[in-house]
Structures are given as C-alpha cells and as structure tokens.
C-alpha cells in the first residue's frame, strides 16, 4: 500500500516513503514464518538466522503479484500504478528490472494461492544457512515442506510433471536476486 512519488515530493521524500513501506512487509513475513508448521520448533537463534537470510526472497515472491510484466508496470495495494521509467527515478531500476523478469517466470506457472504460500515457506527454509546452528533440523523441515509442495502440485495436475521442477528452479533465481539487490540502500529521516 505504498504511496510513491506524487509529483510535488522531492526524491528524498519519495525514497523515505518507499523505505517505510518495507517495514510492515517484513513484519508480515515474520508472522508468516511463525505460522509455518515446524518453524517455531527450530531454536530461536535459527529462526532469526533463516528470517534474516530469507525474508528478502520471500518479499520478492510476495511482490510478484504487483508486477505486470507485459506493460512493465507496478500497481501498489492502494491502486496506484507506476511505469518502470517513473520508478527508475528511485534508483531501483536494476532491482525492478530483475523483478519483472522473475515475476514473469513465476507468474507463467499459474500457481494457486495456497501453492504460492507453501512455495514461500520452502523459499524461507531454503535460505542461506551460514548462521544456522542446527542444520539437520532445518534440512528436515525443508524436506517436509518440499514433500508437501510436491504432493499438493501433483495432486492438482497429475499429468503435468514439469511444473514442480520448474518451480524449484526459481529458488536459485531468488538467491541471485538476493545477492544482487539486498544491499540496496534505504534512507530514514531521524527527527
């Protein structure tokens, strides 16, 4: 629901409002993680580590629905639609460009809401584990979630054996998006 760039505002103010709109989105990913069966069985340390390394990637999946790849536009939850050039002024052109490509590939798979949610759970527990202590527990949780995702997708499309592998191929894409863009700068005014 991020109101970006009415013409009268300076790019600094635009940058601040864009930065602000990440905060609620991150909090929603934290709540989502806590609802994943088994996630809260992990140690608190490992929950925090997975969230720190996986949240950006989950956000990228969530934001896909805002992107209209054909027209290269982004529609925020408040209904405001922006073209890619107008958002380039925010200096996030390269991230947005990658997002259009990623959302086109993910969108073409035509996942249902619950399949997308289960995929996001897999994305989170598949995130970088360098800070994780009990790797075995995380791997077990990942295996369970991948099994659940596979059975949900194959039960609905018994004759389509390509969809599930195509979906898993999005995981490295997300890892690349994360490595390329999570160091984007945000700015917050301190009063």
């Amino acid at each position: 629901s991020c109101p970006v760039a009415p013409a009268s505002r300076s790019s600094q103010e635009v940058w601040e409002s864009f930065s602000q709109c990440f905060t609620p989105a991150v909090k929603e990913v934290v709540e989502f993680a806590k609802s994943i069966p088994g996630f809260q069985m992990l140690s608190q340390h490992d929950q925090v580590m997975l969230l720190k390394s996986g949240t950006f990637q989950v956000l990228m999946v969530r934001f896909c629905s805002l992107f209209e790849p054909k027209e290269r536009t982004v529609t925020f939850l408040n209904g405001q639609t922006y073209s890619l050039p107008s958002l380039r002024a925010l200096g996030m052109g390269s991230l947005l460009e990658s997002m259009f490509d990623f959302s086109e590939k993910l969108g073409s798979l035509g996942l249902e809401q619950d399949e997308m949610a289960l995929f996001m759970a897999v994305v989170l527990v598949s995130a970088d584990r360098s800070g994780v202590v009990e790797v075995g527990a995380v791997e077990q949780l990942q295996e369970n979630l991948i099994k659940a995702l596979r059975s949900l997708i194959t039960s609905r499309r018994p004759d389509d054996s390509t969809l599930f592998p195509k979906l898993l191929l999005r995981l490295p894409d997300l890892r690349t998006l994360n490595n390329q863009h999570s160091d984007k700068l945000l700015a917050f005014r301190i009063d």
């Binding site: 990440f22 905060t23 949240t55 999570s182 945000l186 917050f188 005014r189």
Partner: peptide, 25 residues
C-alpha cells in the same frame, strides 16, 4: 538540516527481525 539514517535493505530487514524477536521474548 534533517538528519538521515541510511542502511541497506538487508540491514533494515535484520533490524526489524531482531526487534520483533526481542519484543516477544
């Protein structure tokens, strides 16, 4: 003049997560 805190997206995400877990301890 207004002062600004500039941080990366990744640091901003980490900050919110740390805050959330600290609050729920």
């Amino acid at each position: 003049p207004k002062t600004h805190r500039v941080m990366t997206l990744a640091d901003h995400i980490s900050h919110i997560i740390t805050q959330d877990f600290a609050r729920n301890q």
